[in-house]
Design a protein around this nucleic acid. Structure first.
Lengths: 132, 132
DNA sequence: CTTTTTGCAAAACCTTTGCACAACC
DNA sequence: GGTTGTGCAAAGGTTTTGCAAAAAG
């Protein structure tokens, strides 16, 4: 694997992600980092997000809504996706990692390495809006 | 909602899916149904897959690998995705639906309707290949 | 000076859509 | 005959990539 050199753009992307808890898409990262680097290109944003995800510094969330989301919080936690507004919210369900008991197990000859789980439903904001 | 009229193309798509257990993508469905309907268009395949999924006759799997996969087996079961070859395999883990206990619950004001879970790892075929 | 990163633009993918015509009922 | 479905082609949205120039070490 190639060595990694510092880049101001990558640093800005990493820093921006750390300030956010709403799991932005590449496009949102691009728009925001452009305040500091008006000439940054979307390609650079994608390259760096992929690089950071490959190195485990951030995680890439594929929620099946078209665009990937990115999260600087790599600690184990679940995500909740609002089916009304699309918002992605962290869920603190630390006691429930029951799917993980299968990690490392052999099922029908298939070796389970891990799992992906997310929850969906209606977020609190959308529920309040529905009340009115 | 509009009424549904019969179409031979939709029937062929449904029938094809029922013969497969490997969760094909729209493109695979397209290629295969073209044996019977050489002029069928990819747009028609997508329209019908979406229609069938919306009606609950098939399920759409968003595994985050770029293309959606489709499954005529709508009974509750888990999926295993091979990180080597991309194959999608049914997992029979009938006793483990522990995530579902959260369905209907309120977490921080967010109403959980359901969840999506899949497992990943190395499938038996790829493991054997790695042995050689 | 060598290697990595960037910006730009083009391309690659997957999926959706507008429209006129065909099929269905 | 009125409505739904199809084929075609074009467009939409997200992500990747080739290349020459710039930055990093």
């Amino acid at each position: 694997m190639p060595a990694i050199k510092y880049s101001r753009q990558r640093e800005a992307i990493r820093n921006f992600l750390m300030t956010r808890r709403d799991h932005p898409t590449a496009d949102v990262v691009y728009s925001s980092v452009r305040d500091e680097f008006p000439n940054i290109s979307l390609g650079t944003v994608y390259r760096n997000l992929t690089l950071l995800a490959d190195r485990g510094e951030i995680s890439r969330l594929r929620l099946g809504d078209g665009a990937d989301h990115f999260d600087a919080d790599t600690s184990p936690h679940y995500h909740f996706v609002c089916t009304d507004c699309g918002k992605v919210i962290d869920l603190d369900l630390d006691s429930i990692r029951s799917m993980d008991v299968l990690n490392g197990q052999d099922v029908d000859g298939n070796l389970i390495a891990g799992n992906v789980t997310y929850f969906y439903g209606t977020c609190s904001a959308c529920r309040q809006e529905a009340d009115s």
